[in-house]
Design a binder for these strands. Structure first.
Length: 641
DNA sequence: GTCCGAATAAACAAGA
DNA sequence: TTCTTGTTTATTCGGA
């Protein structure tokens, strides 16, 4: 079956974080443009007539603030003097003005260079008609790469300007005329800057060396100077001498070891954005590439768009990585961090990472903290819940295989989800719940308590980044669970078949555990090594930003008592009551375990009578099933504030 | 060591 | 024919 083969394919993907890891491991470069290997200073000679090379411009923009200051003080007014003369708002305004000016100048420069390159290319193309094909390809590619690099530099500059918050301009918005850029920056200084750049980054040689054959610059030669935010983009040599850019996310070995491959060629079709032309073999593809995707306005524009896409992703990744680091640091140093099992936080995190991702490869930071797997489909985004990410169930059970831990430790699924919704939604971490629990949760979250299979799928993918891959596997498991468990009832509906939950059956299939007094629960928890889940854990939970903690419905004994029958251990009755009134009856969250609320906790069943709609709605606006089909819309973008 | 629940894989059928 | 949906069986694994 195709599904199965797809499954096998997908199952191999969890370890596909290499690209990201390598990206994350890129030396920061301190804003200096990352890159790799040794520098090549030979290309450091400046452009004639004091014109700025793209590299110089790049460095220029990297040195932006000081240069800007210099530009502001052409009459040798030092920045300090400027600061004394001008008020901060004035300085800010001046900076913005100067940035805008610089931007316009750079754009003009880039445009000029672009035109020049086009002219050169046309000349080369014409000359190449009388020359062997391959050199032409090289030349053409070299020009193309020059063009791309220029565009990249331009993009980088714009991004840097925008990042500094000084310029919110879009390309072409600059309006303030100014003396040309080279007048503002001394060529010798730029030359020195260029040397500095090339000392750490050999990237831009090709730009300086007009007409050089970039095919000799392979993998390490074209990591863009923008590597600070861009992954090194290597060139892949093709059999015909062509090279192409590809991202490091691809398995490098697949290229180096498979000369018959091409990053833009796969599954028999051209992977050029929007193309998808079928090509029988690589040769045909190359021909197609050279004819259909030669250097022209269209291809250039497409490249530009693609660069925008990549850069946006990289910016996002950088932001998220930064936030992750901060989170890691925060968690690592947290004095009141819960220490179940008397393990350090990092150990817990590693535990979560390694066990939860039992089938995936979790990277580990040098500091020992887990590097949550990141992928294009599962970007790691902030753990807004803070410590609650390491919630009880997450701490003690990781992955459905450990499901019993989850139920044993009585973590209500809705509470867990409510607390860690953002985490699960964005992190590629397997939720510590069984498929049945999740399915049930999905169904119960809907107002009418019924879902089609596809809607269940969508809930999974919407709620858990983990389920955005391995689709064949988990979908099969979902179907399997739906069919297997009696608690899931298929109902023929007008729209088709929908699945509902028979709570009674659901409870029947679960052995009555943990039904008793809080003391029993406590003892049981303690007996399971949960005794260490003491004040520190409670404190951590209390510190959680989980808004429901302060929700009256969550802590109001009266409201809770409606569901959690004090001194009553009939699980089914609890569930039935919830089902009967159909109202939102939030259960005790794990935090409430810590609270001296005198209600009987129904650990294993606690999740059952949850009303995630209300629960989740507090923290997640995406609970509604309004548009399940649009997963992509909400995948990458979280608030990045 | 055994039992049980869950996950996973896979085969198969029916229907759109 | 392909895909989705649904059912069933078998295997493996972890925990009790």
């Amino acid at each position: 079956m195709m599904v199965e083969s797809a499954s096998e394919t997908i199952r191999s993907t969890p370890s596909s974080q290499n690209g990201v890891s390598s990206l994350a491991n890129q030396p920061d470069g301190g804003g200096g443009g990352g890159g790799g290997g040794g520098g090549r200073e030979g290309a450091a000679s400046g452009e004639p007539n004091g014109e700025l090379s793209p590299v110089e411009l790049l460095h220029f923009q990297q040195q932006q603030v000081p240069v800007s200051v210099a530009m502001m003080s052409p009459q040798m007014i030092t920045p300090q003097q400027m600061q004394q003369i001008l008020s901060p708002p004035q300085l800010q305004a001046l900076l913005q003005q100067q940035q805008a000016i610089m931007l316009q100048q750079l754009q003009e420069y880039y445009k000029k260079q672009q035109e020049q390159l086009h002219l050169q290319l046309l000349t080369q193309q014409q000359a190449g008609k009388q020359q062997p094909k391959e050199p032409l390809g090289n030349k053409q590619l070299a020009f193309q790469q020059q063009l791309l690099q220029m565009q990249q530099l331009q993009q980088q500059h714009l991004l840097n300007l925008q990042r500094q918050g000084l310029v919110s301009l879009q390309p072409g918005q600059g309006t303030v005329p100014l003396p040309s850029l080279p007048q503002a920056v001394c060529p010798s200084d730029l030359q020195q800057l260029w040397k500095e750049v090339t000392a750490t980054q050999p990237v831009e040689d090709g730009i300086k060396q007009e007409g050089l054959d970039l095919t000799t610059n392979t993998s390490n030669s074209t990591s863009f100077s923008a590597a600070k935010v861009s992954p090194p983009i290597s060139h892949h040599s093709l059999p015909n001498g062509q090279s192409a850019m590809h991202t490091p996310r691809r398995d490098s070995s697949s290229h180096e070891d498979a000369p018959g491959s091409h990053p833009l060629y796969g599954h028999g079709e051209c992977k050029w954005p929007g193309c998808e032309t079928l090509c029988e073999d690589l040769g045909q593809f190359v021909k197609h590439l050279n004819t259909e995707h030669a250097l022209d306005d269209r291809s250039t524009a497409q490249c530009r768009v693609q660069m925008q896409v990549v850069q946006q992703l990289e910016i996002q990744l950088a932001k998220e990585s930064e936030r992750l680091q901060a989170m890691m640091a925060h968690l690592h140093m947290r004095p009141s961090e819960p220490k179940p099992f008397s393990q350090p936080v990092s150990a817990h995190l590693n535990l979560v990472s390694s066990a939860t991702l039992s089938k995936s490869t979790s990277d580990t930071f040098p500091d020992g903290l887990p590097h949550p797997p990141t992928s294009a489909t599962a970007p790691i985004t902030p753990l807004r819940q803070g410590p609650s990410v390491i919630s009880s169930s997450t701490l003690h059970n990781v992955g459905p295989i450990r499901r019993r831990n989850s139920e044993k430790f009585c973590t209500p699924i809705s509470s867990e989800l409510a607390q860690n919704h953002e985490f699960y939604k964005n992190a590629d971490v397997r939720p510590p719940f069984t498929y049945a629990s999740l399915i049930r949760q999905a169904i119960l979250e809907t107002p009418d308590r019924q879902l089609t299979l596809n809607e269940i799928y969508n809930w999974f993918t919407r709620m858990f980044a983990y389920f955005r891959r391995n689709t064949a596997t988990w979908k099969n498991a979902v179907r399997h669970n739906l069919s297997l468990h009696k608690c899931f009832v298929r109902v023929e509906n007008v729209k088709g078949a929908v699945w509902t939950v028979d709570e009674h059956e659901y409870q029947k299939r679960r052995p009555p555990k943990m039904t008793g007094s809080p003391t029993l629960v406590k003892n049981m928890i303690s007996g399971l090594g949960y005794g260490a889940l003491n004040a520190s854990y409670q404190a951590a939970l209390a510190e959680s930003s989980f808004p429901l903690l302060n929700s009256p419905t969550m802590i109001n004994p009266s409201s809770a008592g409606g569901v959690l029958h004090v001194g009553h251990d009939d699980v089914s009755s609890t569930v039935e009551q919830v089902n009967s009134n159909g109202s939102s009856s939030p259960r005790l969250s794990p935090q409430q375990y810590s609270h001296p609320v005198h209600v009987k906790e129904e650990p294993a069943e606690a999740e059952d009578d949850s009303r995630p709609v209300s629960l989740m709605a507090t923290t997640n606006q995406n609970v509604t099933i309004a548009d399940d089909r649009d997963l992509e819309e909400e995948l990458p973008v979280e608030d990045l504030s």
